[in-house]
Design a protein around this nucleic acid. Structure first.
Lengths: 215, 215
DNA sequence: ACTATGAATTCTGCATACAAAATAGTACAT
DNA sequence: ATGTACTATTTTGTATGCAGAATTCATAGT
C-alpha cells in the first residue's frame, strides 16, 4: 500500500478547516502563529504556508506586521459568495456530460428524499449537502472550474456553523434538491440550472438573518 | 508621504508575474528555489510563500518532494479558463451599478476605437485589454467577485505571451469591445453580457491554434 | 551496448534563529 | 484622572540551518 505522503501545509490546512467547521474560531479573531503551531505540534513554517493558502481562499486575511486573522463575516460578503457559487455551479452543470446527469439523476432524487425524512446532526447535514452537490457536479469536464468551486466554498465555510441548529431551512433545501433532480430526470437542463441558482439564492436568504451585521 | 511597506512575498509574486508576462518562464519548467531566491536577492522563505500563492491561483503546481513548476499549458485548460472568466465577468456586469455603466460606456467605446487604430507593442496591447476590462467591471459591487476574477486571470497570464505578434486577432477584439460598449450605450445590459461572453469565446478560439497540444 | 545498482550530489520540506515592527506596560507630566 | 513619552515584551517577517527525499552520475554486471 502506498503510505500517505502529503506536505504538512496541506494537512494543517485540512485540520484548520475542520476546526473552522466545528466553530472553534470566531470570525475576526487574530491567529497567534507560535501558539497555534505549538498546539498542532508543527513549526511555524508549514503553518504559515497553510495560512497563506487560506488567505488566498478568503478564509483569512493578512495585514502587514499584524499577521493573519479569520476574515470577519458580513451579510454583504455572504451574498457575494452565494452569487458567485450559483453562477459557477450553473456553469458546471452546463459543462457536464448529459449522460452522467441522466445516470445520477435518480440517485440525486433519492438522496434528497432520504434527507428530508430523517433530520440528522448538524455536522451530517452539512456533509450531506456538500456530497449532494459534489455528486451533481461530478460529471463536469471543466476541472479548473471544479477546483475553483471547491476553493470558493472553502471561503463560505466560515458561515456554515452560524446556521447550526435550524431545522426548517434544511427541509426547504431538501425540497429544492428534489426539484433540481426532477428537472434533470425530465431532461430539462435549463430548468435544472435555474433551480440550482434558486437553491443558492434561497439558501442565502435562509441564512441571512443568522449573520451578525458588520459592527 | 506614507512609504510603501508590503510583505516581500507580495513583491516577489508581482515580480514573478511580470517575468511570466515577458515570457521568461517556459510552461512546465521546474523552479529552483535557491537559484531564484539568489537572483531576486531574497531568502527562500518569502519566495516559497509567493510560490504557494501562485500555486493557489493555478500558475504553478507543486508535487511532493519535487517542488514547484510552471503549470503546463493545454488547449483544454485554456478553454476551461475562458469559460470561467466569461461567466464571472458576465455576472460582474450583472452586479454592476447601472449608473456607472452609463457613465463609462462612452469611454469604453472611445478606448476600443482608439485601440483599433494604432497597433502598439504587444506589452501595451495586453495592458490595454486588461485596463479596458477593468474599467468595464469597475462598477461591480461584488468585491469578492472582482478579486476572484483577478485571481483566475492570473492563471491565464501563462497563455498571454503565446499569442504575441499576431495583429489581426487584436483588431477583432477591439471590434468586439466596440460592440459591448455600444450595447451598454443602448442600455441593453443583456446584449452587453452576451457580447462580453462572445468576446471571451472568440478570444479563446483566436488563441487556440497558438497553444501547443499537450505532448 | 544496455541495464541495474549504489554512492554522491542536489534540492525540497521543515525547523530554528534572528531582526524589526507592533503591542503592552510604566513612569511621568499636566 | 488623563494623556504622553519611553521602555519592555510579544509577535510577525525574513534568513539560515538541517534532515531526508529525489536526481544524477559512475560503476559493475549481463
Amino acid at each position: 500500500m502506498p503510505i500517505e505522503r502529503r506536505p504538512l501545509r496541506e494537512q494543517i490546512r485540512d485540520e484548520l478547516m475542520l476546526r473552522l467547521d466545528r466553530g472553534d474560531f470566531a470570525a475576526g479573531t487574530d491567529i497567534n502563529e507560535a501558539a497555534l503551531a505549538a498546539e498542532l505540534g508543527v513549526s511555524r513554517t508549514p503553518l504559515r504556508e497553510a495560512l497563506i493558502t487560506l488567505a488566498g481562499e478568503g478564509v483569512l486575511e493578512s495585514n502587514q506586521g499584524r499577521g493573519f486573522r479569520f476574515a470577519p463575516v458580513s451579510r454583504k460578503e455572504f451574498r457575494e459568495l452565494c452569487a458567485i457559487v450559483a453562477a459557477l455551479e450553473a456553469l458546471a452543470l452546463d459543462s457536464s456530460e448529459p449522460a452522467y446527469l441522466r445516470r445520477v439523476a435518480p440517485d440525486l432524487l433519492r438522496l434528497a428524499q432520504d434527507f428530508s425524512d430523517n433530520i440528522a446532526e448538524q455536522q451530517d447535514i452539512e456533509r450531506h449537502d456538500d456530497e449532494w452537490h459534489d455528486l451533481l457536479l461530478g460529471g463536469c469536464r471543466n476541472e479548473r472550474l471544479l477546483d475553483l468551486i471547491t476553493s470558493v466554498k472553502a471561503g463560505m465555510r466560515r458561515y456554515s456553523h452560524l446556521v447550526a441548529g435550524e431545522s426548517t431551512p434544511m427541509e426547504r433545501a431538501a425540497e429544492e434538491h428534489c426539484r433540481i433532480a426532477e428537472r434533470l430526470i425530465a431532461r430539462d437542463l435549463e430548468g435544472a440550472a435555474t433551480a440550482l441558482r434558486d437553491n443558492w439564492v434561497n439558501g442565502m436568504e435562509r441564512m441571512m438573518s443568522r449573520i451578525p451585521e458588520t459592527s
